[in-house]
């Protein structure tokens, strides 16, 4: 589903990603972990070209999205992204947030979009918030809406960039619960997270980024019991 070949990315003189290669199968859940500043967000943002890589190739469903003649907007419709700080549209209600892109990007009839949105709101347990503005919601509720908004586009891939890092502790659970349920639907997911227990439970694979290099790419069992590199061991000791 996702193939990354020899990806390089730098910001002016700072090399953030160094020769990262990775492939994720359809339906797989991949957790990206690593110290802060190691390039996790940048890697994730390259997958939908929010960042343009300097070198290397990215293939989504065997289509090279890094090729200049690719219609990237079309590709992005198929890749949902959930941000640490939600980024709901504050001037739209929850329902309006969710139906905007389906209607204006995918040309789905409004009625149908509303139906779909309500169904998704039920799935994230927010049926009664359809007409609220984002400012009226708690952090956990906002993040669940953000997830539902992405899902409304019916993407095959979901990217999560530290979806619970901006939340108060008591709200982390409700968001993780939503993501966990999603993992069982067969959607392909890439999750950047600091929630080790969650990664261990939900992910099929753990990728460890260290200073821009992908140094470990293992099953959760292997990674958490015997990581190969010293840096990963040190990182785990600090996190667990």
């Amino acid at each position: 589903m996702i193939e990354v070949h020899n990806l390089w990315k730098s910001f002016s003189h700072l090399h953030v990603l160094k020769d990262v290669s990775l492939s994720i199968a359809q339906g797989e859940v991949c957790a990206i972990i690593g110290p802060s500043g190691s390039g996790k967000s940048t890697l994730l943002r390259c997958l939908n070209l929010l960042e343009q890589p300097d070198q290397g190739k990215i293939l989504i469903r065997n289509q090279e999205i890094t090729s200049p003649k690719m219609d990237i907007q079309k590709i992005r419709q198929n890749i949902g992204m959930v941000f640490q700080h939600f980024h709901l549209f504050p001037h739209m209600t929850v329902l309006e947030n969710m139906i905007y892109a389906p209607i204006h990007v995918k040309n789905i009839p409004k009625k149908q979009a509303i139906l779909k949105a309500k169904e998704l709101l039920e799935r994230v347990n927010l049926t009664n918030k359809a007409d609220s503005y984002p400012a009226r919601l708690s952090g956990g509720q906002r993040q669940r809406v953000a997830i539902a908004r992405s899902l409304a586009m019916e993407p095959e891939i979901m990217l999560f960039d530290e979806p619970t890092s901006a939340l108060d502790p008591e709200m982390v659970k409700e968001v993780l619960e939503v993501i966990r349920n999603l993992a069982h639907t067969g959607i392909t997911m890439v999750i950047v997270t600091h929630e080790m227990a969650f990664a261990k439970e939900v992910a099929d694979r753990i990728c460890f980024l260290d200073e821009g290099q992908l140094t470990e790419n293992l099953s959760p069992d292997e990674f958490f019991s015997k990581p190969r590199t010293k840096r990963a061991r040190q990182f785990l000791e600090k996190m667990l």
Binding site: N48, L50, Q73, K74, R76, Q77, I79, G80, M81, F83, H85, H87, L88, F89, Y100, A101, H104, V105, A146, R149, S150, M153
Partner: peptide
């Protein structure tokens, strides 16, 4: 982040700006 969220949803530039 507003712009990034819009881009990630595949919303074209003009609609993103106006709406």
């Amino acid at each position: 982040g507003q712009r990034e969220a819009a881009i990630a949803l595949g919303i074209p530039y003009r609609k993103m700006m106006w709406d």
